[in-house]
Amino acid sequence: MRPIPRRGVAAVLLLGLVALLVVHGTLAPDPAAGRFPGNDAVAAGTLTAGDRVVVAGTARGDAPAGTRLDLDRGPTVVVRGLDADPGADVWLYGTYEEGTIRNERAVVRAPWEITYLYAVSALGGLFTLGRVVRTWRVDTDRWVVVPREGDDG
């Protein structure tokens, strides 16, 4: 059997990966498919009353009609029916209503919980990187990655 031309296959796969990254970027919200408009749609002002949304941001204290929420990379909106301390990280599903959002289900987290998530994830990444370096090496003659185990490399 002829060996598969590695460089050719890699080029095709890379092109395929770029194509997927681009095509995924064209995915628009579709509530019927469980993909709801988010911060971008609120920022763009394309929503109409009654639209269901999933937004994320930081609580900024009470407003007359509800709780102010600074959307990540977006404007500040007033959310009704939300109980969140100022500074809390909020991720919620709700209904858009003329400039405000009525909360239906929210995840309210203290800032340290988000810090924990990133810190512990970084630890997981470093742990894996350490094992990669310890158990694999780059063979620069053949440009392949080979296990360090003597009988396997």
Binding site: T128, R131, W136, R148, E149
Partner: peptide
């Protein structure tokens, strides 16, 4: 092997 365990990770 340990290297393959790393691959899973």
């Amino acid at each position: 092997t340990p290297a393959m365990t790393t691959a899973a990770m």
